[in-house]
Design a binder for these strands. Sequence first.
DNA 1: TTGCGCAAGTTAAACGTTTAACTAGGATTA
DNA 2: TAATCCTAGTTAAACGTTTAACTTGCGCAA
Lengths: 339, 339
Amino acid sequence: MKITIKDVAKKAGVSTATVSLVITNNSRISQDTRKKVLKAIKDLDYTPSRSARGLVSKKTGNLGFILTDDHFLRTEPFYTRIFLGTEFAAHVHDFYILLTTLPNTFSIDDPLPRFVREKNVDGIIIAGKVPTTLIQKLEKYKIPLVFIDYVPPMGEFPIVLMDNISGGETATKHLIDLGHKNIAFLGGDVQHPSIADRLVGYKRMLEKHNITVSSKLISTGSPEPIKEEGYKAMKSLLSKNNNISAVFACNDAMALGAMQYLKDIGIDVPGKISIVGFDDIESNIFLNPPLTTIRVPKIDLGVEAVKLLSERITNKNIARKKVLVPVELIIRESTRKIS
Amino acid sequence: MKITIKDVAKKAGVSTATVSLVITNNSRISQDTRKKVLKAIKDLDYTPSRSARGLVSKKTGNLGFILTDDHFLRTEPFYTRIFLGTEFAAHVHDFYILLTTLPNTFSIDDPLPRFVREKNVDGIIIAGKVPTTLIQKLEKYKIPLVFIDYVPPMGEFPIVLMDNISGGETATKHLIDLGHKNIAFLGGDVQHPSIADRLVGYKRMLEKHNITVSSKLISTGSPEPIKEEGYKAMKSLLSKNNNISAVFACNDAMALGAMQYLKDIGIDVPGKISIVGFDDIESNIFLNPPLTTIRVPKIDLGVEAVKLLSERITNKNIARKKVLVPVELIIRESTRKIS
DNA sequence: TTGCGCAAGTTAAACGTTTAACTAGGATTA
DNA sequence: TAATCCTAGTTAAACGTTTAACTTGCGCAA
């Protein structure tokens, strides 16, 4: 027989309502009674029934987590770490997470995730870029949404982002502090908000130190911020400038490509050229030299999203709309003081 | 106002019990009534409340999915695909999946996953190797368990495995069919059941074709079946045999290492030596030459686990204990007919 | 004609919580 | 001293299902 609130009430010598009030942290209960009840709960190893709770409170106690198939299956465990963060925080806020993936071909007449249709979540976390059609369909359900690492093109939703501008500043400052002046920016498509922001940080920090921002040192032509493009971009940058002493790559993948090119043409890193990346991807550790980079705390992104969503669910009139998670400079061996 | 079973009952002109019986597919209801009710459900877009259901039926409608941190965060999305399979099948069997990871340092006095403590799952799927202490603690909870890709050292649990023996046979047969006779086996630690079984399949197929099994062609010394070990093992194998014309590697990672070594010493694949791998990992596609391998249907592993678990939950006296998921030969360009 | 069995429903209790409304008694105010 | 307000609880209804037990009507055997 399962232990119920009645058993606890009897053991503590109070009514079931009192037990319930203790569980939900209601202030109407005196410290003495609270203690008694808490002890009874512990002694009996009681856990409230989610079903019974959900039935009367009209809450499910679940949060949905949506991302696209290819984000989930990526070899770089970026979104899996974010998920782990939400799992962790869900624990604290007493939620369960229901993870589901979406084909990236999601179209307007595809069915929504099951937990939406069956109303089995109190709120939804959306990680990474998802099809706009999904957001449109989701809006009608009036379920609180929170986005991670993606700014939806429409609507007014709470968002959790990493602090790309400050990351760009930190990376650039690190190079400046090492004595570099001719610092190149190796970027991808500036349409992507993250990349644009990292570039903003780069420019800002240069200006702050009275270093002229030269368009000849900035590469933003690459369609995708991947290794191969980093290789090409490094090549083209070097063909236009022969005095580059440092490179801030908009992400680690491009930094890897750049390092590969430099290795191929016999330029030593960090001997001749220092390189800073962004993201701190897993495979960096095996790199030679290990890459100095800006670490993005993926776990924290997830944690903050759950916090934000939890606030929304319990307390509708909340002001927080946007959370910027700070990033961190990780100094390894790809950067060096200029001689 | 949420639509309840009462609304459906009223609309269909029956009692709520009848609606419930229709939903649960009880045979006591006539076809006519069933149709009426189904129509009302559709018209009203009714979905039963999980909480209410759970409360009376004492089921949660959830399944737990446990794996270790490092399995979940692996760059090769093996377990993530298995999870996707369970998600997919959960849909069919009307369950939700609660995913949680475990530190691989799990010890006897670490707390069990929250869904176990709070009794918020009807059954649990365990994927990959997990600490024995976990299984021991879990056993006491009397929750149905199913293992995927791991044979626990104790207890009698239903398991879902890939068919390693038949995979080993298929790979070897493919090479034999191409005319190869001097076929090496590149393996890791035979303590690992999967590797041992693949070796069994290899030997069996050779014997079937009256090819002598030579221990000089079999390498099982590698502690871990990883790329670096494949490189070493290939080297050592070649130093002992100068007439190897084909290699069956116990997994793709080792196959990759072997190919790397052959490339380094100038032996053409598949010109001089054919190679077959096992697993069909994602990165194979970018390989040159693309690797012929045995594909493991990860999705199916997940699907079968949910099926098995679902049977256990609804129908305790089920016989099925072990499900072998068939594997499939994928012919690419690393194998060639012997000239 | 009576009695029985069966098919196809219905009735109503039960599941384990939360919470609005109520209460008892002490403290504060007028 | 009487009226009022708090504080710290209690009572009981409600949430939306499932299901054991009951009912009704019909066909069939004796």
